Amino acid sequence: MRESIEKSARHLYGLVHARYIVTTRGLAKMLEKYKKGDFGKCPRVMCDQQPLLPMGQSDVSNTSPVKLFCAKCEDLYNPKSSRHASIDGAYFGTSFHNILFQVYPAFIPPKTQRRYEPRVFGFKVHAAAALGRWQAEQRESMKDRLKQARVETGFEEEDEELESEEDVDDEMDAGPEGFEHGAVPQQ
Rank of each mutant, 00 (worst) to 15 (best):
R150L: 03
A90S: 14
L131Y: 11
V151H: 03
F92M: 05
Q50K: 09
G93K: 07
A136Q: 13
E163K: 15
K72W: 01
D59E: 05
T94H: 03
A127W: 02
M30V: 10
S61E: 12
E161S: 13
Q49Y: 08
G154H: 06
T94Y: 04
P110A: 10
E74P: 01
K36S: 11
L31S: 04
G56R: 06
T63Q: 04
A28V: 06
E137T: 14
E74V: 04
R133S: 08
D75L: 09
E163T: 13
E117C: 12
S164G: 00
L162N: 15
L53D: 03
E157H: 15
Y77E: 04
E160G: 03
H126V: 09
E137C: 13
S64L: 06
F101E: 02
M30R: 13
K80A: 11
D88Y: 08
E137V: 13
L68C: 03
E165W: 08
E156Q: 14
F69L: 13
G89I: 10
S81Q: 12
D38L: 03
K143G: 01
S81D: 11
N98P: 00
E152N: 13
G122M: 04
L76Y: 12
K124F: 05
A90F: 07
E117V: 14
T153N: 09
I99P: 13
V125D: 00
F39E: 00
A106D: 15
F107V: 12
D167M: 12
G37N: 09
A129N: 07
E161I: 15
E140R: 12
R145C: 07
A127L: 08
G89R: 07
F107M: 04
C42D: 02
M30W: 05
T63Y: 05
K111L: 12
R139G: 01
L162T: 15
S141R: 15
G89M: 10
I87D: 02
F101L: 11
R139N: 01
F92D: 05
V125R: 05
C70T: 04
E158W: 14
F39D: 01
F155M: 14
K147S: 11
Q138D: 08
L31V: 09
A90H: 07
A106F: 09
C70P: 00
A149N: 08
R150C: 04
A127M: 04
N78I: 10
